[in-house]
Design a protein around this nucleic acid. Structure first.
Length: 952
RNA sequence: GCGGAUGUGGCGUAAUUGGUAGCCGCGUUAGACUUAGGAUCUAAUUCCUCACGGAGUGGGGGUUCGAGUCCCCCCAUCCGCACCA
């Protein structure tokens, strides 16, 4: 073979390693550019062809930027803590560190074969103590800071304490409080805090999970059921940053869909908080319990409770109130005759699993408390119900129900036969009888009706008028609510970062920063302890000696100088939330990263990764970065300036069809008469080529197929195919190593790009890879003669040759700039085809061409570059060729000539041709007679260098 | 239900500002060279039609000399969220 990739590729990979070609310094006269990939979790299965898609795209961009004179930071590392390694440890007893290390080595081997330009000197691993020292450090900073609502930024807790000492409404009794009471109060402010909160408990995994780790009541990892449970857990007060997380989206260059996913997840909604007084006379006996709900500005103290609504304009349509089953008021307001029923409902509702609740969303359930509230604007008595369609975690866990204009309230009212009153109409007089409605009118448009002083107003104006009124009355105010919850930060697992926290009488205290990292201890068993403690409960040496400032044996715990350490570990997103900053200065032992480094690199210019991280990692990382920004660490408020989501690569499965009558007989796809007469069976895509089954390998594949017989079409067995997820069980996993071995890394890289736009999801189909491979053989031949000897000509290239080169420069440059790599590949193919036709082997064309192709196919480019310039150094440091317009200028243009908008023929005309000349030429053209005849054109459209259109 | 995206040959796709729809590649067909080829090269390949010609970018309407591209309505598929008041 002429183009010998298997010789070229290892050679240059070695050269790059030895020359440290991809090593990057933190200072340079060149402009800086930071290209980052989402680092992988090193799974035992290794890489499949879907993983490198984004890495290849970012590598092309990084290499391109470098060729354009940028100092490019392009690092890679591993998100090495995580559940699979630990699950494997539970099964085998193998330490997760060992399997993780093994998987990392395998990943590295696979990545190296593809020829990425990563600076491996900057590699980070989240499970490395030198790295997680800074994860723990950041946690301590979060613990020691609170969110100052006035300044809208994080400030040290010590400042808050100083305020409390001076006297503050938030802690009027601070100076008389005990240490324990003070610590408990501060927990309400710390950005990392310990609290009894309802968590997502997954019994199978033996741990709690964050909201983004649970989908439809099942864990994302493993798909195990998740229940709600009240537990004392560490959380991050990410909700404090909700507004800034929404606002920041305006400044970044991300896809609209991803921004929208984030906005939905944060779920900002504007509305009003309104206090509804209880009907005291009817409930005189419940007064004490309701005192806590007294409004601050009420004209006279009235027991009340607070609700949140986004539709204050519908307040005249309230016909009942609903409390969530967890609401504290329920106990005190339930009338004796309703007590048994309410208690039964509340118990039932609280014990339902998340999965049950979510599965039965459409089922209406609830119970009347027997008590009433008073509508503050109409002074009507309104019954108070309890139902689990009101959620404890959102707003105040209580709502005013307006069944005419809220579909959930509507369903509830219909089910329990409660009144429905229309207060909004699309037109002022379009009022109808709600009992005839099949659904509520939820739209925030139209006019208020039957609504006292706001009747006749547009919905928008009515909202404002009602809020103004309730603010005047002192019974409520304008407010904003967020759906985003605080992130649960404890995991009852082993393979994660230990918390640098110890406990004195149940009160958490931080380990001094200077003592970090607090290393993860070895344990004998990876399961929870017999008493139900997390796995770290098995660790023998796991207590903190406060005086000696070191970890000591648990047996020494005396709760005077030696204290127990926290047994939970941090979740996966702890280590991945700030890794991009650590790459800037990865070996720094004094700081997370130096100010010098962060001020040089600023933030990530281009981040490439999957859209599945939209509600998890990308929210956490933005929060993490904003916090570090507040405390003066990170240089920019947003971590990732531009973000590109690579589409998921799906698998393309192949099927054979087994006859139901004879289970040794397999029928070729197009011979099947009745689809029901055969059973489709997944077949390994590695024994199928272009949907043709390799019969011998099929027989050898599994014992039960050894004596298989076939009904063939034209001597071949044709398989069926379907697009499915790429997975082992479907036998459709394509391993990149196999393709690198068969075609080389350059072909794999180029083919992955050729598949289609990077952002688009697409099935993996090896059928086209031959075309790319042929291109490289052709490309190689441009630089070589029939005997495969390197052969370029120093002669002046022709005009046509220069035109092809510059067309290619222009197109490829523009394509890379807009991340359209698939079109660049076809441009290279066109270029090679044309130069081949012209038998062009001019140095002045081929040299720039080698540079152009280098970001895509670095190995062949490096080989050709060294053949072209014996002492030219690496092609990575060449100069990107510049496009010159003059090579594209032509004297003539081939005009498409249209009649009534339909293209009929083309006409070569001088580039400088005027409309008159063009029309004359068209009329003179013999083809025109057919379309024009004797008629005179009614109108002529002449667009220079575009088109001639004759209307007749 | 709400939000986002996408619909173009047998297949992956291209057409950047409204200007020759189908570039490039796969596959297929025919041919050349070959002992042979799953190597290489040449040609053809949207559909209907012998042809002339006609139709054609999910469907329907509109704007325009001209629409894959702009506007309105509808359909399908995929993704995200989902009792968030």
């Amino acid at each position: 073979m002429d183009y010998n990739f298997s010789e070229i590729e290892p050679k240059w990979q070695r050269y790059w390693r030895e020359q440290k070609t991809y090593h990057v310094e933190n200072n340079s006269d060149k402009p800086h550019y930071y290209v980052l990939d989402m680092f992988p979790y090193p799974s035992g299965a290794g890489l499949h062809v879907g993983h490198p898609l984004g890495y290849i795209a970012s590598d092309i961009y990084a290499r391109y930027k470098r060729l354009r004179g940028f100092n490019v930071l392009h690092p890679m590392g591993y998100d090495a803590y995580g559940l699979p390694a630990e699950q494997y440890a539970i099964q085998t007893g193998q330490h997760p560190a060992i399997t993780t290390e093994r998987n990392i080595n395998r990943y590295r081997e696979q990545l190296d074969k593809i020829g990425f330009s990563f600076d491996w000197d900057r590699e980070v691993r989240t499970c490395d103590p030198a790295y997680y020292k800074w994860t723990q450090w950041t946690f301590l900073q979060l613990f020691n800071h609170y969110y100052d609502e006035e300044l809208q930024k994080a400030r040290p807790v010590s400042e808050l304490v100083a305020k409390f000492e001076k006297g503050d409404d938030r802690a009027p009794e601070w100076n008389t409080m005990s240490e324990r009471e003070r610590q408990e109060l501060l927990m309400d402010y710390r950005l990392a805090y310990l609290a009894d909160i309802p968590v997502n408990w997954c019994a199978e995994l033996g741990t709690v999970l964050a909201n983004d780790e649970v989908v439809n009541g099942l864990s994302v990892r493993g798909g195990y059921p998740v229940e709600r449970k009240l537990m004392r857990q560490w959380s991050l007060r990410i909700s404090a940053y909700a507004q800034r997380l929404v606002d920041g989206l305006e400044q970044v260059d991300w896809s609209d869909s991803l921004k929208e996913i984030q906005r939905n997840w944060i779920g900002r909604s504007e509305g009003a908080a309104v206090w509804f007084p209880l009907d005291v006379k009817a409930n005189a006996n419940v007064l004490p319990g309701a005192q806590a709900y007294m409004p601050e500005f009420a004209p006279e103290p009235t027991p009340s409770f607070e609700i949140f609504t986004t539709r204050p304009d519908t307040i005249f349509g309230v016909t009942f109130m609903v409390l969530c089953p967890e609401h504290e008021l329920i106990e005190s307001i339930t009338t004796p005759d309703r007590k048994a029923e309410v208690e039964k409902y509340v118990t039932w509702a609280k014990n339902r699993s998340e999965r049950e609740r979510q599965a039965e969303v459409k089922k209406v359930s609830g119970v009347f408390t027997g008590s009433y509230a008073v509508n503050p604007l109409t002074e009507e008595r309104i019954p108070i119900w309890v139902s689990d369609y009101v959620l404890a975690g959102y707003g105040t866990g209580a709502i005013m129900a307006v069944p005419a204009h809220d579909s959930r309230d509507f369903a509830f009212a219909r089910h329990f036969n409660l009144p429905i009153r229309q207060v909004v109409a699309p037109e002022k007089d379009a009022v109808s009888d709600p009992s005839t409605w099949s659904e509520s009118i939820d739209a925030k448009t139209g006019y208020s009706v039957n609504s006292g002083f706001i009747s006749g107003m547009k919905v928008k104006d009515a909202m404002k008028a009602v809020i103004d009124r309730i603010e005047d009355m002192g019974i409520g105010h304008r407010t904003v609510n967020f759906r985003l919850r605080d992130a649960i930060f404890s995991r009852q697992r082993y393979w994660g970062e230990p918390f640098p926290i110890y406990y004195k009488e149940g009160v958490p205290y931080p380990i001094p920063e200077e003592c970090l990292p607090l290393p993860l201890p070895d344990i004998s068993e990876y399961k929870p302890t017999a008493t139900g403690e997390p796995p770290l409960g098995h660790a023998e040496v796991w207590a903190w000696n406060e005086k000696e400032r070191k970890v000591v044996s648990k047996s020494l715990i005396d709760n005077t100088s030696v204290f127990p350490l926290e047994l939970s570990t941090m979740p996966g997103f702890a280590g991945s939330s700030g890794y991009y900053l650590r790459y800037m200065d990865p070996r720094n032992d004094e700081a997370y990263f130096s100010q010098e480094a962060v001020n040089y690199w600023q933030n990530v210019d281009l981040y490439v990764g999957g859209a599945e991280h939209g509600t998890g990692h990308l929210i956490y990382a933005r929060f993490w970065n904003k916090f570090l920004f507040d405390i003066g660490m990170s240089a920019k408020e947003e971590p990732f300036q531009k973000l590109v989501n690579q589409g998921m690569i799906q698998g393309r499965s192949n099927f054979v069809y087994r006859s139901k009558e004879d289970n040794r007989l397999f029928i070729s796809k197009n011979l099947i008469k009745d689809a029901d007469s055969v059973t489709p069976i997944h077949v390994d895509i590695n024994i199928v080529d272009n949907d043709v089954l390799d019969i011998e390998r099929f027989r050898a594949w599994r014992p039960e197929f050894a004596d298989a017989r076939f009904e063939l079409e034209e001597g071949k067995y044709i398989c069926g195919w379907e697009i499915e997820k790429m997975s082992k069980s479907m036998f459709n996993v394509q391993n990149p190593d196999d393709l690198v071995a068969k075609y080389g890394a350059d072909t794999l890289r180029m083919y992955e790009m050729f598949l289609g736009p990077v952002e688009q999801a697409k099935p993996w189909d090896t059928n086209g890879i031959e075309g790319v491979f042929r291109f490289f053989k052709k490309f190689w031949r441009l630089y070589h003669d029939e005997n495969n000897s390197f052969c370029v000509d120093d002669a002046e290239p022709s005009k046509a040759e220069m035109k092809i080169l510059h067309q290619t420069i222009k197109k490829v440059t523009e394509d890379i700039e807009r991340f359209s790599f698939n079109t660049s590949v076809s441009t290279f193919m066109i270029c090679a085809n044309e130069l081949d036709k012209l038998k062009c082997n001019k140095r002045a064309v081929l040299e720039p061409l080698a540079v152009l192709v280098a970001p895509f196919a670095p190995h062949i480019a490096e080989e050709l570059w060294h053949l072209l310039k014996a002492d030219g150094g690496s092609v990575c440091d060449a100069q990107w060729p510049l496009f010159e317009e003059r090579y594209l200028v032509e004297d003539s243009f081939t005009y498409p000539v249209s009649f009534n908008g339909k293209m009929r023929f083309t006409l070569d005309l001088p580039a400088t041709c005027t409309q008159e000349e063009a029309v004359a030429a068209v009329k003179a053209a013999p083809e025109a007679q057919k379309w024009l005849g004797d008629k005179e054109p009614k109108k002529i459209i002449f667009v220079p260098k575009r088109i001639i259109n004759i209307v007749c």
